[in-house]
Design a protein around this nucleic acid. Structure first.
Lengths: 336, 336
DNA sequence: TTGTAGGCGTTATCAT
DNA sequence: ATGATAACGCCTACAA
């Protein structure tokens, strides 16, 4: 920067003014300085800059995992919105032990970030404490904690699961529904399970002792479970808590000689790209993943700009997507 | 930091020494300082730190796109390795116009990053220039440029495509192969196309005028193409340049009344999770995506640690994965 | 409109 | 083993 100043025959402050376009600078000097910057290929030092400005224009995004289409879309949305607003995004998952550490507990990066968007699969006390005394703004994704005021973007899981369950029970005329969730402690799994129970109760249907399973959202484990249970499930419908598990169960059912959806209906959740690639195409619930990421970043940036503003909660609504795997196609008119 | 020093009744330098564990510090004072840090919840300022140390422990990862399983796995690998080595990762795609700008051309972040791993779908002059005078170390992923010395991690695309083509022509006894690639200018598409041509030439097979198609690696466009061409393709095998397109073509074939693989064989590339979820399961070429990301970050970190070292190229080898979609199952013994 | 000087929070260099 | 002090590169009053 000193070099630039010397070449343009101005002082450091003028160079700074040109870079930041803050104050009015004489047309001629401005041109001189800019050409000097060009010539020297000068790039301001982000550290020194951050030291004064106290911001890095970098955001953190903490996810439970980075695997799969679901998180991939959240990342895409978050990244897209971040760029839009002039920020960069650092990504981290809580999966690998030491990983989220650096973003949540870790001392190194925290002060570098202007804010952080966090999604945890289960809200432990430890995480709550961590968040409670976070030195930087944060926004929660699809999760909520009582007490502490904070911004969040949530998905109306209950509504989505209700829509699916009602579709199955009312429209597809399913007599038995098997619930295959993620971990029982997961926020979304429990919200969906509740909807499952509620609808069955409304319709006077019973929940069999083996009708509820908790897995890990992965294809393979769902496939294994499907292989074990397929015969027992014949005639029922499996409500899987994501599309990957639904795909695994369909594969297992087919491998067991069951026709899908004739012998066993299977539905998913999320509406990732997988749902259209699987045969039969999945009936599922579209979750606006891209939006989830984008809105979270948007909210975060608003708070950064205005730290004292009211905590806001944005609620995103899922939408039932009827394809083939629920078995109602051709059996009755399309649901509206 | 001044507060910590005051509370612990030591000087700033001692606090710094405790934090960095560089010099030997008296046991008693060390304890005092540490408890003071605890009590005040002190966190060092990363900007000031970076200003002195001239490193941020942040790496950049630039990808052509963030969509889909393929890039998702690269990110996962890169992120995992970065964490392992004490770095964080900023992600960016060249898809959204203004996006990569901030990492490649953009002035803001560049000086914050300790290095950057870059994957471009086509190596333009502009990118070359950008890289040539990059102020920070970079490593290229699955791409190469002449002239400029640099680190890179490449996939032996040619070998992988050769293995697949030989399998199709020799083992599956396919008489006609249709090539469905990404953009013609893509690095990997052209490498695979070359292998396609080479094997057909070796076997004295001809390439029909409509046997080569260039799409965009996406399911939908492949599906559309499949719908148009399915009848013309009957009896042949489609060699798609990624699993998503293969899935799209299978779906189109089925929709057109063709049985896969009996009436039309279809094979993919990458071995993303999709390849096992599709029916028939895809014969494909496994590309070590996770490793690609991880190795790139590893290489980058080595260069950061030792800027003057010899440029290194790591070559990763793909592997043929035979499943059902090529149609050779049951027709002959497994290939070795 | 432009220049001068002080400070941001840390680490490094030198004394002690 | 510890402390004082000078950088690091930039921004921002304030003065000219």
């Amino acid at each position: 920067m000193a070099d630039v100043a010397r070449l343009a025959k101005v002082s450091l402050s003028t160079v700074s003014r040109v870079i930041n376009r803050r104050a009015v600078v004489n047309k001629a000097t401005l041109a001189r300085v800019e050409s000097a910057i060009q010539e020297l290929g000068y790039q301001p030092n982000a550290f020194a800059r951050g030291l004064m400005l106290r911001r890095s224009e970098i955001l953190g995004l903490v996810l439970p995992d980075l695997h799969g289409e679901f998180y991939s879309e959240i990342i895409r949305g978050a990244n897209s919105q971040a760029r839009e607003l002039g920020y960069s995004l650092i990504i981290s998952s809580t999966r690998d032990g030491n990983d989220s550490q650096s973003l949540l507990t870790g001392t190194r990066l925290r002060s570098l970030l202007d804010g952080v968007a966090i999604m945890v699969s289960e809200m432990t006390d430890r995480v709550q404490t961590l968040l409670a005394d976070s030195p930087i703004p944060y926004v929660l994704l699809d999760d909520d904690i009582e007490g502490t005021p904070h911004d969040s973007v949530v998905i109306d899981q209950h509504q989505g699961a209700m829509a699916m369950m009602r579709h199955l029970v009312v429209h597809c005329d399913v007599r038995r529904v098997i619930f295959v969730g993620g971990l029982a402690t997961n926020f979304d799994t429990s919200a969906r399970l509740e909807a499952y129970r509620q609808v069955l109760r409304e319709k006077g249907m019973t929940v069999g002792p083996d009708d509820i399973h908790f897995l890990n959202y992965e294809y393979d484990t769902a496939f294994d479970l499907g292989l074990q249970r397929a015969r027992d499930w014949a005639g029922a419908c499996v409500f899987a808590a994501n599309d990957e598990m639904a795909a695994g169960i369909i594969a297992a059912a087919l491998a067991s000689g069951l026709a899908v959806p004739q012998d066993l209906a299977v539905v998913g959740f999320d509406d990732t790209r997988i749902s259209r690639m699987v045969r039969p195409a999945l009936t599922t619930v579209r979750v606006p993943m891209f939006d989830l990421g984008a809105k979270a970043v948007g909210l975060l940036c608003q708070r950064i700009a205005e730290p004292a503003r009211q905590p806001t909660q944005i609620c995103l609504h899922p939408e039932l997507v009827v394809r083939e795997s629920c078995g109602c196609k051709g059996r009755a008119p399309e649901p509206t």
